[in-house]
Amino acid sequence: MIEARELRKEYGGFVAVEGSSFSVERGEVFGVIGPNGAGKTTTLKMLAGLLEPTAGGAEVAGFDVGETEMRHHLGFLPEESPLYEEMTPKTYLRFFADLYDVDADVATERMNETLDDLDLQHRDRQLGDMSKGMKRKVAIARSLINDPEVLIYDEPASGLDPLTTNYIIEFTEQLAEDGKTVIFSAHNLFHVESICDRVAIMNEGEIVARGDLDRLQSEYGETTYHVYTTVEVPDSVRENGRYHRVVDSMAAVEGTREQAQDAGGEVVDIRTEQSSLEEVFLNVAESGRQRQ
């Protein structure tokens, strides 16, 4: 549904994105993460047809991103979506529905349905009088007014309170379950981890890692083993009448077992722990710095 081929964007002598390639399947939720200035927004804007790639290309819903027709199949939500504050949600959404060639009756039905789902009240109030969260909901409703197959959301929950953030993340997850293809960026990696099937990690304009979360965790993360014994072993601490030792390999687990048996005790529990996406991301960023 989304195919990016060696996307490159250069501003003067500054390379914002270098050789980004990835694909997103229909119904998939694809996350793009990275530190500030990594090239996430530039990548998403090239996919939305807002920025012309300096080199490379991309297709969205089977259309080249430069084609106007592609935009009929796309819902784009920029990180900042200042609205025309003199308008009301209704007039604003109807205006965009007209631009997307959506039939008036269909547009009205779709608008009401989406605003109901988003639990947006005060639909005749001017947008300028609304809270940031309400405005964000209107912006999301606008991105859905043409019932697009592909959604590109750049920091959809940026600057919102936790309650609204959770609401919007759950709503985005629901959109994916309804068959939409979603690609989005976020600073809050917990959100990415909770709803994304696959992610791409960007750093300094390049995709430094990509794949499903399990693969990234195994490649860039760590598995730690928490071994609990009945007797004291080296590097252990006493917890609730047991001794707790953290090791990073199965060989070390085996060594701990032998040490416990030599001391007349035994291993009573072993727990494994995977790195979070945040730790994976930090490890990738750190390895990038070391390469430099």
Binding site: L50, T68, R71, Y84, L99, R142
Partner: peptide, 14 residues
């Protein structure tokens, strides 16, 4: 200002 026109640019209009 404040990127107000960005959403028109991404709409299916020239």
């Amino acid at each position: 200002l404040n990127r107000r026109g960005e959403l028109l640019l991404v709409s299916p209009v020239t």
